[in-house]
Design a protein around this nucleic acid. Structure first.
Length: 294
DNA sequence: ATCGGGATTGCCT
DNA sequence: GGCAATCCCGATG
């Protein structure tokens, strides 16, 4: 199956390696793109033929059917693809996630098994998209996992394809005349990535394994990140939830420039992601168990 | 019917 | 690093 395929380590996971796309991938220099050029620039025929063929690697239902924390880590390095109405495809590599369990996880929208119209997608089949609005003005995108009410929040992407469109979408709601966003600023936050990839609220409850407009891919010839390349840190923006705010269930690629918030303390403590996760965290995260702390 | 807060962001000092 | 923006959802009466 894999025989004959040259395996290549994941680009960009090393701290020393800055934003750098595949060598044979034309990285559009989009610093001065006029609106008229946008469509032409972002059609997928911009990609070399071989790469274009290789990118047909949609992840199926089975990928999503794993425990929440496990899925949160497995999503790192995977590519989120958004096919727009005009055929333009936007791509971004996932570099930061957070696991939100059901049940006991007080920070989760599904805490205590609470099920509402808003969070219904969290209880649907693994791979279902959960989009919710926050602060009245922003959206966040999650992927449901195995486990009652559990889902993974996508926090940051490394833009791979469609930079000009992403920049246009992101600039639309920013102050006129503001400095142009750098590539690494296009998708480095949960609501930023929804803007940049044009993920609307109506994508809520759709499924990543079957939707024609949005899906996930594995990068061909690319290994998943090594455990030591994954940092685990407390989740962001949930300070009010006491003990549960301390759970190290945010995961990101060490040294990656597109991570939204770097946690140096967590990076010191965890040379390896497993150091931070208690055994019970790793084995079972359905929220049914008691998490023991040393 | 009303009220309070939020898994964030961008601009300001 | 602080804080306003902004509105929908869910809880309560």
């Amino acid at each position: 199956m894999m025989a004959g395929r040259k395996r290549k380590s994941l680009a960009l996971t090393g701290a020393a390696k800055p934003l750098q796309v595949k060598k044979d991938h034309k990285n559009p220099t989009d610093s001065k793109v006029s609106p008229a050029e946008l469509n032409k620039d972002d059609l997928q025929d911009d990609l070399p033929g071989d790469l274009q063929g290789d990118l047909q690697h949609r992840l199926g239902e089975e990928f999503f059917n794993q425990p929440c924390i496990s899925l949160a880590q497995a999503l790192l390095g995977k590519v989120l693809v958004r096919r727009c109405a005009d055929g333009t495809e936007l791509r971004g590599r996932i570099v930061e996630t957070e696991a939100y369990l059901g049940g006991e996880d007080k920070a989760s929208h599904s805490s205590g098994g609470k099920r509402t119209k808003r969070n219904a997608a969290m209880f649907m089949a693994p791979g279902t998209i959960y989009v919710y609005s926050i602060y009245g003005i922003y959206l966040c995108m999650n992927v449901s996992s195995e486990g009652e009410g559990a889902a993974v929040l996508l926090r940051s992407l490394e833009p791979l394809q469609g930079h000009p469109v992403m920049r246009q979408l992101r600039a639309a709601k920013r102050k006129e005349g503001a400095q142009q966003l750098k590539d690494k600023e296009l998708c480095n936050g949960p609501s930023k990535l929804c803007q940049a990839l044009n993920i609307p609220r109506c994508f809520d409850c759709r499924h990543l394994a079957s939707d024609p407009e949005v899906w996930l891919e594995s990068e061909p010839n690319t290994n998943p990140p090594e455990p030591q390349d994954i940092v685990s840190a407390p989740r962001i923006g949930i300070e009010s939830h006491g003990e549960w705010a301390k759970k190290p269930w945010r995961f990101y690629l060490r040294g990656h420039p597109c991570v939204s918030v770097v946690n140096k303390e967590a990076e010191r403590q965890s040379g390896n992601v497993m150091n931070n996760l208690g055994p019970s965290d790793v084995q079972s995260d359905t929220g049914q168990h008691k998490v023991k702390r040393a």
